Simulated scan of single mutants.
Amino acid sequence: HHDLTEDHVLEGVIAYGAAFFAIWWAWMNFTWFATSFDTDDWLYRVLTFVQMGGVLTFAAGLGDFYDGDYGLAILGYVVMRVAMVAQWVRAGHGSAELRSTAYTYAGGVAAVQVLWLVLLVVPESVRPALFGVLVLAEIAVPVVAERRGTTPWHPHHITERYGLFTLILLGESLLGSSNAIIEALDGHADLAPLIAIAVLTLAVTCSLWWIYFWPPHHEAIGSLGQSLRYGYVHYFVFAAAGALSAGIEVEIDALTDHSKLSDMAATFTVSVPVAIFVLGIWWIAIRDNADRVVNVVVPVGALLVLADPVIPVPVTLTAVILVVVVTVLVVRGPVSRSGRQEHAQG
């Protein structure tokens, strides 16, 4: 959140988006692989430990990454992905039916990792464009591989993992609320705004939790196309959840006169992630399991939170709108697709 606080908004957003892609992509690939080929034997566990080492290396390099030095972060990312290559090779060796799919995954992932290492030695002026190309190459690998044979997955297992990751990210927002209270207890002169932001952001975080877990997520991944949409759109959902915690910290800095951002811009650091989160979940999981009322209230509510900066007390409008959205969801529960069709015909 420091880039935002220093009014380096564009640089901060780009760096965050790039760093979060690495975290999300490595996690998502492992999650889908695990639901298909989790043997839980000694080698599977060792390769998982290697991936953990890659995670730690990547985390250690994030500070330099934000300063433009990609070396350590990319090395950690490649370690994570090379371990995944080994997992796919094992899967291909053990499954004749899905051998072509598994080896396509292994070859595709391995080839892209070589290019990530090449990124470290090309001229700096070329790196941003090559970075974008490599991101596209990464997300293209599953699309190509799955056309050679669809790997099996367990809808409930997959969506449970997505839900757990969401809880972790929303927990960071609760930490932001806690920090507001800590600032107040540390003797800040004006306690009321800090207490207010703590209460309001708690309401926002709880509402987002309710909205996320309202629909039956397992029904959103019935086909390969649906699964790809569910998985890829979750990048924006997860990134927004993570950015919300940064936005709360920015709001605290603004309230304590430690930010170069205007009050309006600081409020946008909360309302924009909230809008993206709600719209993303509505698109991939809610709209196909909701009636007309819900399918109007949720997206409209997501857009209305963008008007929050016009309210003198930050996050007030966002909290009120989300509570209204949750109230509608409580009153009008999820409906099955067949039920919605019968309602439309009636």
Rank of each mutant, 00 (worst) to 15 (best):
L4E: 10
V13E: 12
A15L: 11
F30A: 14
T35P: 02
F37R: 07
W42T: 15
T48L: 12
Q51E: 13
Q51T: 13
M52E: 05
A59P: 11
G61T: 07
D67C: 00
A73D: 10
G76V: 01
A91I: 02
G92Q: 05
R99G: 05
A106E: 04
G108P: 10
V109Y: 08
V109F: 11
Q113C: 12
L119A: 08
L130R: 04
F131C: 00
V135N: 03
R147D: 09
T151W: 09
T151C: 09
P155W: 06
H156C: 01
H156V: 12
T159D: 02
L164V: 13
L170E: 05
L170M: 11
G171T: 07
S173T: 14
S178Q: 10
S178M: 12
D186I: 04
S207F: 04
W209N: 06
W210T: 11
I221P: 07
L228Y: 14
Y230G: 00
V237Y: 02
F238D: 09
A239Y: 03
A240Q: 07
L244C: 09
A246S: 14
T256E: 03
D257Q: 10
D257S: 13
S259G: 06
T267W: 03
F268P: 01
G280T: 02
I281G: 12
W282A: 00
I284S: 03
A285W: 02
D291F: 03
V294R: 11
V294D: 07
T316K: 06
L317V: 06
V328K: 05
L329W: 06
V331E: 13
S338H: 14
Q341V: 14
Q345R: 15
